[in-house]
Design a protein around this nucleic acid. Sequence first.
DNA 1: GCGAAACGCGAGCGATCTCTCGTGTTTGCC
DNA 2: GGCAAACACGAGAGATCGCTCGCGTTTCGC
Lengths: 219, 219
Amino acid sequence: MSVDQEKTSPRRQARGERRIAQLLEAAANVFCTTGYTASSTNAIAREAGVSPGTLYQFFPNKEAIAIELGDRLIHQMRETTGEALAAVDPSTPLEEAIGTLVDRFTAFSCQHPVFFALMHGPDIPGRLTEEHDALHAHLLGQVEALIAAFLPGAPAADVTRTAHLCLGLYKAGLELVLSHEGSERDAYVRELKNVLIRYLEPLLTEYRATADLTTTRTP
Amino acid sequence: MSVDQEKTSPRRQARGERRIAQLLEAAANVFCTTGYTASSTNAIAREAGVSPGTLYQFFPNKEAIAIELGDRLIHQMRETTGEALAAVDPSTPLEEAIGTLVDRFTAFSCQHPVFFALMHGPDIPGRLTEEHDALHAHLLGQVEALIAAFLPGAPAADVTRTAHLCLGLYKAGLELVLSHEGSERDAYVRELKNVLIRYLEPLLTEYRATADLTTTRTP
DNA sequence: GCGAAACGCGAGCGATCTCTCGTGTTTGCC
DNA sequence: GGCAAACACGAGAGATCGCTCGCGTTTCGC
């Protein structure tokens, strides 16, 4: 298990690891401004201050650069969202739960703008699409579980649809948040929270009404 | 005014007009599945069943194909949205107004899936970006006017932000609507309406409360 | 029916992009 | 110090794409 941490890769020196990090950072910048397809490997190498040959010393092809970059971002995203979602207590008010979730999620996206650019472009390589779909499915499952915790007994199809809506609405809000700065950005974060709260609140009160009805009916 | 309806274009025969329509339809298909940048002009010509040379008989370059296609779609979109938004009466219930607007907008997008693909890709040509931005600004202005009609006296910055949110939320919902079919699609349309209604309703009641307060204060 | 112009073809030019290769340099280990 | 391996270079091979050009075909006005 400890031998060869990567599949059939040459033994890396510290210098190589630094180059890889340097190349990935350059790739993030280039992808962010140009998009995946339109970005050339020569441009990435130039941005990193190395020759095209050096780039291919560490990555077999262009797709592998995006894959590695995406893998690292997805891994960080999974950790961030996992921690944030697991920390939610269904007995707390909905407003508070959504507030902290949106704050943590937006903080991550603001720190890694390339994540949004890479994952939502129409021209990303197939492998990354699969991994992003997996992340999205994972996230969807967690949100579904959370919604089910707030609304126990709701039909599965409705829970799934609501979870899809929540993620979609968050993405739309995030786009607006990322395209503004300073106090205006904060205002959009506030509005995004309002959207989610107002969309979900009625479901909660509706559920409680029917639950009360059931308990009074069966004493 | 009646002479040369296009700038310095050769006199078109009926056959040429048919070829143009045929090429634009082929381009719509190819753009829809491959995206703009990744689509090759040879692929478009092949899809249309003509030679690359024939394609360049009618379009000076690849960008012009996307421009012409985008222009026609944007024109149709402007007409559709213009009619729909102008027909809204601020005295009707919010629920009804949003219901008809969402229905009309989604109907258009379902009929022209390439519109969504062309306008929201990160790799579209500059000219189209400008026109899409113009369309978006136009749409934003109309939505702002509508919101201002429902909420007279609200601060301009808030109205603008709310309009941005509405368009963004609609876009997010549309994506979910387009990715489903049949009854599930209908369910997402219903939920999209709910999102918008629940987001906007509190603004309305809040405004009315302050308006009542003002009127009682100044008899 | 005849001439001009619009239409149609497809090989291929030039530019660009990904990726390779031969060679030279630096690093880790004895 | 010396050797093997990792690192670095950059010219260019090979492939693709946008677009052109020369020539043959169809259509229109007269």
